[in-house]
Simulated scan of single mutants.
Amino acid sequence: MAGLPEITIAGTVVADPEIRYTASGAAVANFTVAANDRRFDRDRNEWVDAGATFLRCSIWRQAAENVAETLTKGTRVLVTGVLRQRSYEKDGQTRYAFEVDATEVAVSLKFATAEVKKATRTAGAPAALAGEPDPWGSAPPATATARTTSGFDEPPF
């Protein structure tokens, strides 16, 4: 992914995530995040919405299942990933869309609290993800749902 811009966006999920599976069994979750440009107008003494940016996001594998189980419409999130531009034809005109290939998705704690539970692993996960120590020393993914138990019995620290 070298050369592509990495971004972090804070916003609100506009609809429940959609999850699907590829022929090989890999999960992919798609969802849209709206980031509102909101400013305080001192003349009117109120907050004013100055527009919104909608970004379609996708995330893969175990994280996709965690996202689909955790996020719902209206959840405020932080999404980090690679920004991609694609073009398509509609009515004889070339149009462009920006999308985020998410690498991390987190529930924002700005206006909410969350209880974090370790996620269970899906069948067919690579050995390093199914209970074997991670060779890079990273922590197993966690979700803010009621999912419990995983192949990891000890925290990574």
Rank of each mutant, 00 (worst) to 15 (best):
A2I: 09
L4H: 09
T8R: 08
A15M: 12
I19P: 07
R20C: 06
Y21Q: 05
T22D: 10
S24I: 04
S24R: 10
F31I: 00
T32W: 00
T32E: 11
T32S: 15
A34N: 12
N36V: 03
D37Y: 02
D37W: 00
R42D: 06
D43L: 12
R44C: 05
N45A: 15
W47C: 06
W47Y: 06
V48S: 01
A50Y: 14
A52R: 09
A52C: 10
F54T: 00
L55P: 03
Q62T: 09
A63L: 06
A64T: 00
A64Q: 01
E65W: 00
E65P: 03
N66P: 04
V67N: 00
L71N: 00
T75I: 05
T75P: 03
R76I: 07
V82C: 04
Y88D: 06
T94W: 01
T94I: 06
R95T: 06
A97F: 05
F98D: 09
V100R: 00
V100H: 03
A102E: 01
A102K: 02
T103N: 14
K110Q: 14
A112S: 15
A112I: 04
T113D: 15
T113W: 08
V116L: 15
A119D: 02
T122V: 13
A123W: 09
P133V: 01
P133K: 01
P135S: 04
G137I: 04
G137S: 08
A142K: 10
T143D: 11
T145S: 15
A146S: 14
T149W: 11
P155S: 05
